[in-house]
């Protein structure tokens, strides 16, 4: 579905991604794990068009999307839930969801999809008129995910959804990630919480200082001594 081939991404002269390649097949949950500053968010921003790769290619559903504008990438079915949620704090929950459907014109379907987001996240329905800046961190994460789903993505990019959340909330969020995947959306999940991420993923990539160092099935990585030491708290 998505094929990233040796991309290099720079911030000025900081070389943030160095020849990164990865592949995602339809229906999978693929996780990308790595320490702070490894380049995970940079990769997602490049996939969604916020950053442009200097070299390398990104192929999505058979055509190149590298260097395309974010709006055309969203239109082609990739939604990105950014790190730190980035909800529109000055707008209500429902307005945030409507913005998620910004490129869609089927207003009847949009109403229906807002209802299905509320079914997925009942807490959001209770707070539909509330300003999203007043939501708790977990609720904001739900909103950010609901907002991304409103674009009807085929591929959902999630950047550290568990960041800063209480364990119970992390569990809820991961259950919902699995449910979204079962309903037919392919997922690329970026996490520092490697344990949790590997438990829901099919395959995984480990990124260190801008390079993909290890890749394999989630089970392989869970079993690897090296990974256990570096990312799973040495258990």
């Amino acid at each position: 579905m998505l094929k990233v081939n040796g991309i290099d991404v720079f911030y000025g002269n900081i070389h943030a991604l160095k020849g990164v390649s990865l592949e995602i097949n339809e229906g999978e949950i693929v996780t990308l794990i790595g320490a702070n500053g490894a380049g995970k968010s940079t990769l997602l921003k490049t996939l969604s068009g916020l950053l442009k790769p200097k070299s390398g290619t990104i192929e999505y559903l058979g055509s190149s999307i590298s260097g395309k504008a974010p709006q055309s990438i969203v239109k082609s079915g990739i939604s990105h839930v950014p790190e730190g949620r980035r909800v529109f704090a000055n707008m209500s929950v429902e307005e945030n969801l409507e913005l998620g459907a910004y490129l869609r014109k089927d207003s009847k379907e949009i109403r229906k999809d807002i209802q299905s987001v509320y079914e997925l996240f009942p807490r959001l329905e209770e707070r539909r008129k509330q300003l999203s800046g007043t939501l708790s961190g977990g609720e904001q994460q739900m909103l950010a995910m609901g907002r991304a789903i409103m674009a009807k993505p085929k591929l959902l990019l999630l950047d550290e959804p568990s960041m800063g959340l209480a364990p119970l909330m992390v569990k809820t969020i991961f259950q919902i990630i699995e449910k979204i995947n079962k309903d037919g959306t392919t997922i690329l999940l970026v996490e520092q919480n490697a344990n949790m991420a590997l438990s829901v993923a099919d395959r995984a990539y480990v990124i260190e200082t801008g390079r993909v160092e290890i890749s394999g099935t989630a089970a392989e990585l869970q079993a690897s001594e090296e990974i256990k030491k570096a990312y799973l708290g040495g258990l």
Binding site: S48, G49, L50, A69, P70, Q71, V74, K75, S79, H80, P82, R86, V87, F88, A89, N90, M91, E95, E98, L99, G100, Y102, L103, R147, A148, A151
Partner: peptide, 20 residues
């Protein structure tokens, strides 16, 4: 108008919604 409010709050997040 909603796009204007979104962009003024967070330009990159607005881009991710598909806002030009």
């Amino acid at each position: 108008g909603k796009a204007m409010r979104a962009v003024s709050h967070d330009m990159d997040a607005a881009r991710l919604m598909g806002i030009n």
